[in-house]
């Protein structure tokens, strides 16, 4: 888990987010705003004050994004003028062309997509299968093994990074896609999350299927998976974002520019153009678009998956 995923010991996470066996889609991390709270209607003055403060805060949150966009469209000499101008004049969209021509941003983008999609698909598959075993199968040592899964969540990635790198070198996976993807194939966090979801499913459908002679694989793939789409989506988004923003492991395992993911490639770009802030910002703007698109399209799921896991960028 190169993203630095952290999960609390169960007892506290449970208390915050509900009972262990609760279906994940009912875990109260649904964050709504503008509550219909009875009573205590605020006076107009106090309401205006709150709106004003929130608006001022929003400017602080949004301005760095706008400044990045504005800078990305400025010509070189406009970068260092006083007073700084918010709107680029003259308009320099060619910065994007320059960055795309001189730096393989397209390649970085492709690498990020390949790694994030593969990593997400693999984590979903392996976690769902393990979660099924822990939620539905009875076998010796099950609970002890589940604890081992949970214990791996406590290990900081920095502890494993050196042996992991040595291992990848021995396997010949340094500077390869497998090198980037393999360490993220399994997710103890995903197993935990999906197990919760599976535990909440009613047994009746499965029992009927078993009586008809269905195998565990059939029950898993035809009944449990289709019924667990919300939980799978929550974890899928989490895994995708963690991979997309992951920095430390790709930085270590890849040195060839052809295999750099966006964050590492961008950091490299900045190293090359230390003062060409317009080009750096054009690259940053390109890199931020896909993840913002995911966020806008699935805002609720994104917020919930982040809140549930405690992952941050």
């Amino acid at each position: 888990m190169p993203s630095g995923v952290q999960v609390l010991p169960l007892s506290s996470a449970e208390r915050v987010f509900g009972e262990l066996g609760q279906p994940i889609e009912r875990v109260p991390v649904q964050v709504t705003v503008g509550l219909r709270r009875r009573g205590f209607r605020r006076p107009a003055f106090s309401r205006a004050l709150i709106y004003g403060a929130l608006l001022a805060g929003s400017v602080i949150m949004l301005f760095p994004f706008l400044w990045m966009l504005g800078t990305s469209l400025k010509v070189d000499r406009e970068l260092f003028v006083t007073p700084p101008q918010l709107l680029p004049a003259p308009f320099a969209p060619e910065n994007y062309r320059i960055v795309l021509d001189t730096f393989p941003i397209g390649r970085f983008l492709l690498n990020s997509v390949v790694v994030a999609v593969a990593s997400t698909a693999l984590q979903l598959t392996t976690s769902a299968m393990a979660a099924y075993a822990f939620a539905r199968l009875r076998f010796r040592g099950r609970d002890a093994l589940f604890l081992v899964y949970l214990a791996t969540l406590m290990i900081p990635f920095q502890v494993t990074i050196v042996p992991l790198f040595v291992e990848m070198r021995v396997l010949g996976f340094v500077n390869t896609y497998p090198g980037l993807i393999l360490p993220t194939v399994a997710s103890a966090f995903g197993t935990f999350l999906l197990r919760q979801a599976f535990l909440s499913l009613p047994h009746e459908l499965e029992e009927a299927a078993f009586i008809d002679g269905a195998s565990h694989w059939t029950v898993f793939s035809r009944i449990v998976i289709p019924l667990s789409r919300p939980a799978l989506a929550t974890f899928g988004i989490f895994a995708f974002m963690a991979s997309w923003n992951s920095f430390l492991w790709p930085l270590v395992v890849v040195s060839s520019q052809d295999l750099m993911t966006l964050p590492v490639g961008l950091a490299n770009l900045h190293g090359r153009y230390t003062t060409a802030w317009n080009l750096v910002m054009a690259g940053a703007t390109i890199s931020v678009i896909p993840i913002l698109a995911v966020y806008m399209a699935a805002q609720k799921q994104v917020i919930r998956s982040v809140a549930l896991s405690g992952i941050k960028g």
């Binding site: 509550l35 709106y51 966006l262 890199s287 982040v306």
Partner: peptide
């Protein structure tokens, strides 16, 4: 954001924006 006021969800969207942005950016 927990106040009984209308139109607050846009603020939640805005304040959460940097969380999904990568550290490099």
């Amino acid at each position: 954001l927990n106040q009984k006021l209308g139109g607050l969800s846009i603020f939640r969207t805005i304040y959460f924006l940097p969380v999904v942005t990568s550290w490099v950016v």
